[in-house]
């Protein structure tokens, strides 16, 4: 840095100090109504004394989610925005390839009225929809818990079973293989077809891919975010569809393209 640069830097720091002084004056004028913002104290993974959450390196945990206590999250799983996994009095096990979507809550019970211990176990490739509440229950592999469903203590969702959206599964209910239960309280509605069972595992893999994109985005540092912001601004006018119409082929920078594996059938959809 030259002498001029140093001089400008010093002047800049003076002005900043002045600005902070103005800020303090403003704060004191606001008086008791002032709220001073603090650095976020939200903890994504939080241990309770000796209960540490164990999260696989390939799992996606959104920074806004809270994973507390004795929780194990397997490979390829995803815990989305605003989720709460609270394994404080008992353990939560989440298998691999499972997704727990936004604002869902998973909790455990120490003991229920009949006295048996109820950890929450979620198997592999399970899809737990938005806003679901899972309390002390067991969900086996490749099950599907729909949006806003509530699973109460001791309920058991067997393999390939499905809890429809908005259902409330009461205590100690067992949902058998390949059935759909819905309503409040949950009742048997129909059997799942083969295609739907295939769709469940398909949606789990889709979600795993989608989670990887989100994980990459959320793990970015400040520098990277700023760089991409400027890139996005630069390329905003150069819309791919418009350009192809007038016969220009432009390459978007690698940072701004999404992988195609979010949806495996995407290319096929466009073609049809």
């Amino acid at each position: 840095m030259g002498t001029l640069g140093r001089a400008i830097y010093v002047v800049g720091s003076w002005i900043r100090v002045a600005g902070q002084a103005v800020d303090r004056v403003g704060c004191s004028l606001q008086g008791s109504h002032l709220f001073e913002e603090r650095v976020s104290r939200h903890r994504t993974l939080m241990n309770l004394f000796d209960k540490d959450p164990v999260v696989d390196k390939d799992a996606f945990v959104a920074p806004g989610a809270s994973v507390i206590g004795d929780v194990q999250v397997g490979r390829g799983s995803s815990i989305w925005y605003g989720c709460v996994l609270r394994g404080d009095v008992n353990s939560i096990r989440v298998g691999s390839g499972t997704n727990i979507q936004d604002n869902a809550l998973v909790h455990v019970a120490k003991t229920n009225i009949s006295g048996n211990v109820l950890p929450t176990t979620i198997g592999n490739n399970v899809t737990v929809g938005h806003g679901a509440v899972l309390h002390g229950c067991t969900v086996e592999d490749e099950a599907f818990v729909g949006m806003g469903a509530t699973l109460l203590d001791g309920s058991h969702v067997e393999k390939n079973a499905m809890v429809a959206a908005g259902a409330l599964v009461r205590q100690n209910t067992r949902i058998p293989f390949g059935e759909v239960w819905g309503g409040n309280p949950a009742k048997f509605m129909r059997k799942l077809t083969e295609e739907e069972i295939a769709f469940i595992s398909q949606s789990a893999t889709n979600y795993t891919n989608l989670a990887m994109v989100h994980a990459a985005e959320n793990n970015k540092g400040f520098q990277e975010i700023e760089l991409e912001k400027s890139l996005r601004k630069k390329f905003a006018r150069k819309d791919e569809e418009y350009d192809s119409m007038i016969g220009v082929v432009r390459e978007t920078p690698a940072e701004l393209t999404l992988p195609d594996n979010i949806l495996p059938d995407k290319a096929q959809k466009i073609a049809s």
Partner: peptide
């Protein structure tokens, strides 16, 4: 990261 000092970002761009 167990604690991100930035908290959850409000705006999350994905690709473009």
């Amino acid at each position: 990261v167990k604690w991100d000092y930035r908290g959850q970002r409000m705006i999350i761009p994905l690709g473009q």
